[in-house]
């Protein structure tokens, strides 16, 4: 289990994250949702080790992950903004990742449809394919915990369904996902657990049923729960 304990982060006088505590159970998909500026990206960057929290800790199997070196063994992180080398062809990029890390996954490449665009330069790819390539980087390494920051931007509804299926298959294969999503309808299709963030604070956590019970609104959609939580 991935446990986040009391993580706080301040920049100047502004509190970006305020004592964030939640658990992301193994083999589940935990969605971090919230309005723009809620602190989703900062939270994921902090968990991945690219930002230092002012307080708090990230634990895996009850052991605190203190150094970036340890975190990078466990976490695969895909930042929201990542402009993969535009002058590289898809093949060059994949070859570099393979040579540098030893990881390659032909099935994943095919599942993401990247085998059809190998010769294309990254800068010539559509936004959806750029996202697929980023997902390939995040998934090909087989690290147990995958942290994805807004991975579904740029996909049309059919492509999105394919990607959601792919992520679910990876979960079945034993990986744990922590995903920030701003489209609540997308989150509802894939997440097992939710962390609702607003202004750097957790307003609610749990699976959909427990959230419905908490706010006393049976059969409510995630959107409705979210609105209630923000009230």
């Amino acid at each position: 289990m991935l446990s986040i304990r009391n993580i706080s982060k301040r920049k100047s006088e502004t509190t970006i994250l305020d004592r964030i505590t939640f658990d992301a159970p193994e083999n589940t998909i935990t969605g971090v949702i919230g309005p723009n500026g809620a602190g989703k990206s900062t939270l994921l960057r902090t968990i991945a080790g690219f930002e230092n929290p002012d307080e708090g800790a990230v634990l895996f199997q009850d052991a605190a992950l203190l150094s970036f070196k340890v975190k990078k063994q466990l976490f695969s992180y895909m930042p929201e903004y990542l402009e993969l080398y535009p002058e590289y062809s898809v093949d060059e990029f994949i070859t570099f990742i393979h040579r540098a890390s030893g990881f390659s996954d032909a099935n994943l490449l095919k599942a993401l449809g990247l085998d059809k665009v190998l010769s294309k330069k990254v800068r010539h790819l559509s936004k959806g394919y750029k996202q697929r390539l980023k997902l390939y980087f995040a998934l090909c390494n087989k690290k147990p915990i995958v942290i994805l920051d807004e991975p579904f931007d740029g996909f049309d509804p059919i492509q999105l369904l394919e990607i959601l299926q792919l992520i679910k298959r990876e979960r079945e294969a034993g990986r744990t996902f922590l995903i920030s999503i701003h489209q609540l309808s997308d989150a509802e299709k894939i997440c097992d657990h939710y962390v609702l963030l607003d202004e750097g604070r957790i307003v609610a956590t749990g699976d959909k049923e427990s959230l419905r019970r908490k706010f006393g609104i049976a059969d409510a959609s995630l959107e409705r729960i979210f609105i209630e939580a923000l009230k």
Binding site: F68, Y77, P79, L82, E83
Partner: peptide
């Protein structure tokens, strides 16, 4: 490009 985070 944020690729430093990728390399790391």
């Amino acid at each position: 490009q944020n690729t430093l985070e990728l390399l790391l």
